[in-house]
Every structure is written in structure tokens, then in C-alpha cells.
């Protein structure tokens, strides 16, 4: 139902449009974080540090549902769908290939929305700890969320004992994605 970008749009316009998608998405991650029980009890400095380190990874989890492996298209949060071939011309090839691979792995676990949300919370509080002032508070928050996620998943799927470990194995994948791609360039038109 969403229009696919046609030849009338230049690469520059597509790049800027793509860049703009991230602004509302990042704001939504901030709002999401505020809703995580215990997150706002961390110092503001530590909240900011976790968000700066972890938002890209949370977005990667969030965005994976927008990847259509069969059609090889990506639908962005502004509603526009681009074929992979078009996005490659923007120099995003390696990131997108890694994203398709990650989204297939995560998609195969068939998480319910509440499991996905709790997983995103774990991703955020498991982000890089450089600059964190109260490590113990962050670790306690992380442990609590991981316990809650394990409890939710094992209660719902008692016969699939491999699911929770497979899910945790996605955390290093996300860190790799972050390290490889968070230096990608975005472009914005400003007054």
C-alpha cells in the first residue's frame, strides 16, 4: 500500500528522506525508555548515556519488522518503501545486508509483541557502559529485565528451552551492527 520511490526522486532526496526517518524513531525510543520500570530511577546522566549507546541497537530490533526478506524491500517509518537495489545506491549496502540477516534470525524466533518490547528493554540497558556513573544500579536493572524476559518466554513456551538462549545471542549481533554502522552518514536540510 505504500508507494515505492520512483525515478523522479534523486538519490540526494532519498538520502535526506531516509535520514529524516531516524528523528521520530529516536524520540520514540526515548519515550519507550521512560516507560521501562526502573529506568527513570537511574541518574539522568546514566539514562542519557544508556540511550546514547543503546538507541541504535533498539532501533535495529524495531526496524527488523520493516524488512521484507521475500520482496527484498525496506519500509521506513515515514511510510515509504524502497527496494534494496535503490538503497544500495546510497552506499547503505553493507548495513542493509547485515540488517536483512539479523531480521531473518530474529524473525525466526517469532516473538510476540510484548516479548519483543521486553527484549528491546533488555537491549537498551545492556548497552555499552562507558560513561555510566552507577554501574551497580544499571546491572540490577538489567538483571531484573532479563529475569522478566526469561520468565515470560519460558512460561509461554515451556517446551522450547532453546528460545531464550537464542534470543540472548542476538545481543552480540546487535553490538556488532552498532560498531560497524553507527558511523554511517545522514543528511539534513536546515535553515
Amino acid at each position: 500500500a505504500w508507494p515505492v520511490s520512483g525515478a523522479e526522486r534523486t538519490s540526494q532526496e532519498i538520502w535526506e528522506s531516509f535520514s529524516q526517518c531516524f528523528t521520530p524513531a529516536v524520540k520514540e525510543v526515548v519515550e519507550f525508555a521512560k516507560g521501562i520500570p526502573g529506568f527513570q530511577e537511574l541518574s539522568q546522566q546514566d539514562q542519557v548515556m544508556l540511550l546514547k549507546s543503546g538507541t541504535f541497537q533498539v532501533l535495529m530490533v524495531r526496524f527488523c519488522t520493516l524488512f521484507n526478506a521475500e520482496e527484498r524491500t525496506v519500509t521506513f517509518l515515514n511510510g515509504q518503501t524502497y527496494p534494496l537495489s535503490t538503497l544500495r545506491t546510497l552506499g547503505m549496502g553493507s548495513l542493509l545486508d547485515a540488517m536483512f540477516e539479523f531480521s531473518e534470525k530474529l524473525g525466526s524466533l517469532r516473538l510476540e509483541p510484548d516479548e519483543m518490547a521486553l527484549f528491546m528493554a533488555v537491549v537498551l540497558v545492556s548497552a555499552d557502559r562507558s560513561g555510566i556513573s552507577d554501574m551497580r544500579a544499571v546491572e540490577q536493572l538489567q538483571e531484573g529485565l532479563i529475569r522478566a524476559l526469561r520468565s515470560l518466554i519460558t512460561r509461554r513456551r515451556p517446551d522450547d528451552s532453546a528460545l531464550f538462549p537464542k534470543l540472548l545471542l542476538r545481543l552480540p549481533d546487535l553490538r556488532t551492527l552498532n560498531n560497524m554502522h553507527s558511523d554511517k552518514l545522514l543528511a539534513f536540510r536546515i535553515d
Binding site: V26, K52, S182, L186, F188, I190
Partner: peptide, 25 residues
């Protein structure tokens, strides 16, 4: 005419987060 600003995804994320917290203080 508008100026083209180019920044990394990491810097953009950082900027949005800083703005959000500053606005809510």
C-alpha cells in the same frame, strides 16, 4: 536556501537525546 548538514547516525541519535532531556528539564 537551506544548508545541508551531514552527520553520523550516532551523532544524530546523540543530538536528539540531548535535546529531549534538555527540553524536559
Amino acid at each position: 536556501p537551506k544548508t545541508l548538514r551531514v552527520m553520523t547516525l550516532a551523532d544524530h541519535i546523540s543530538h536528539i537525546i540531548t535535546q529531549d532531556f534538555a527540553r524536559n528539564q
